[in-house]
């Protein structure tokens, strides 16, 4: 027998091993739910899978009696719009600010302390300020995401820029580059894939801020719905919504990873060499 640290699962074995914990959780849930429903058929805490399916069918395919909307899809699209807009704005700001902070010493000296200070403020603490300034509409929700993740993204971008080998920056200058050309042709193309990596890491926080904002003030959205039906203990809606959010988060992460690979083919061989 080989040592445990040297035993690697095969491809199919790996997939099966990965599935086991999920199946286990489903099995335990289904068992516990059955037990509870047998004692009290009106139990709301652990609804059966069939109940969840019924509720989701209603949310997805039957227009709401009040507004005529298909609630599940309206919620999904308004949440994704807010998230996408917030993340896109953050990415753009941090790309511009981060690059200038990283490459131009005078800008770094002037602006970096401010960014550090802002990043220390818990974003949720200023949510009331956002509601007061921007009202209860879409802007304040998007702003919360932007304020929540931009400081991290800026600092990460700045560090990545400063990590670029000094040799490259000097070499570019000996090839006649001015500051702007160093930024556009040497720094920017090498920073874009690293920004995507940082975005993947900050998506979790972005969701957090989105749900928080929606929970407090909204008329649609995944977070809004979860917090709304909580009043009726509707676990049959909450649980599928949570799973759906997890699926959306996973899909966003996967898409960003694919984008990074296909748009920047040079980094595949570069990282392989670094390993």
């Amino acid at each position: 027998m080989k040592r445990l640290i040297n035993q690697h699962p095969r491809r199919i074995g790996k997939i099966l091993l990965g599935l086991i914990p999920f199946l286990l959780i489903l099995g335990v849930y289904s068992f516990a739910s059955n037990e509870r429903l047998e004692i009290n058929p009106n139990d709301k805490l652990m609804p059966a899978f069939s109940t969840m399916a019924d509720s989701m069918h209603r949310m997805m395919f039957e227009p709401s009696k009040r507004s005529g909307e298909y609630l599940f899809w309206t919620d999904t699209s308004s949440s994704l719009k807010r998230l996408g807009l917030g993340v896109a704005i953050s990415a753009f700001i941090s790309l511009v600010v981060g690059i200038f902070l990283g490459i131009i010493p005078k800008i770094r000296a002037g602006v970096a302390p401010l960014i550090t200070a802002v990043s220390l403020i818990p974003p949720l603490a200023i949510l009331p300020i956002l509601f007061i300034i921007f009202g209860l509409g879409e802007v304040s929700k998007v702003m919360l995401i932007v304020l929540g993740i931009t400081p991290f993204l800026i600092r990460d971008t700045q560090l990545r820029v400063m990590e670029l080998p000094e040799e490259q920056i000097i070499k570019a200058q000996t090839l006649g580059a001015n500051s702007w050309q160093v930024i556009t042709r040497v720094v920017l193309p090498q920073i874009l894939p690293k920004l995507i990596d940082a975005l993947r890491l900050s998506l979790g926080s972005a969701w957090l801020f989105l749900i928080a904002a929606e929970a407090i003030s909204s008329t649609s959205g995944l977070g809004y719905r979860i917090f709304l039906v909580r009043r009726y203990l509707s676990m049959d809606v909450i649980l599928p919504y949570v799973v759906w959010i997890a699926i959306l988060a996973f899909a966003a992460d996967y898409l960003l990873r694919r984008l990074s690979r296909s748009a920047f083919p040079w980094q595949i061989t570069a990282t392989r060499e670094a390993k």
């Binding site: 040799e167 000097i170 070499k171 090839l175 090498q190």
Partner: peptide
């Protein structure tokens, strides 16, 4: 400051990976 009159070759990192 570095300019085009003086070329340089370092031991490594002289070329642009992208």
């Amino acid at each position: 400051e570095p300019d085009a009159t003086r070329g340089i070759v370092f031991q490594r990192y002289s070329s642009f990976p992208h």
